[in-house]
């Protein structure tokens, strides 16, 4: 008796699951060109400074932060997008003004920032990035270094039009 109920439930569950997967499988290819938008990461906006100036490099440099900025609707690279970058480095704390700087993406939607070496702070070696651009939702990232000896870090943005 008991096994009968479970079997019927199992069939119903599996059936509806298969139906859901099948239908969504039919829908997804219709907008396959779109990219999943990059969600803001927890703690990403901590110690953010609005309107940090565009700089050639932050401090003395030596560590490279790179990434790309693309549009969610069609995956097109976005040029001239302002990305602010900050971290706890060998030259200053996250909150220090001198630890912040912004840069713009090139025609391929690529940004690069030369900055001081990131060092572990608050228990993790991590950086912060903000995409702060008109016409797109603001996104804050907080990527981690795999090792504190790492000399570069990559963070990509896929932005949603407001």
């Amino acid at each position: 008796m008991r096994s009968n109920i479970i079997t019927r439930r199992a069939i119903l569950t599996a059936g509806s699951a298969a139906l859901t997967v099948g239908v969504s499988g039919l829908i997804v290819p219709a907008k396959a060109q779109g990219l999943a938008p990059t969600p803001t990461m927890r703690g990403g906006s901590n110690n953010y400074r609005p309107n940090a100036p565009i700089v050639e490099r932050i401090g003395g440099g030596g560590f490279t932060m790179t990434g790309t900025v693309r549009r969610a609707s069609d995956g097109m690279p976005l040029a001239g997008q302002r990305i602010q970058i900050w971290a706890h480095t060998t030259e200053g704390h996250e909150r220090d003004e001198r630890s912040h700087g912004a840069t713009l993406t090139d025609e391929n939607g690529v940004f690069t920032m030369d900055m001081p070496q990131i060092v572990p702070a608050f228990g993790q070696a991590h950086g912060h990035l903000a995409s702060e651009n008109e016409g797109f939702e603001t996104v804050f990232l907080r990527p981690l270094l795999d090792s504190p000896d790492q000399k570069s870090l990559t963070a990509d943005f896929v932005l949603v039009t407001v």
Binding site: R42, G43, G44, S45, N46, N47, R95, F122, Q124, R142
Partner: peptide, 17 residues
Amino acid sequence: ITSPPDVIDALLFRSPT
């Protein structure tokens, strides 16, 4: 005092760490 937002996140159980 070192970094208020990081500690507030921790105390509210919403820290990424």
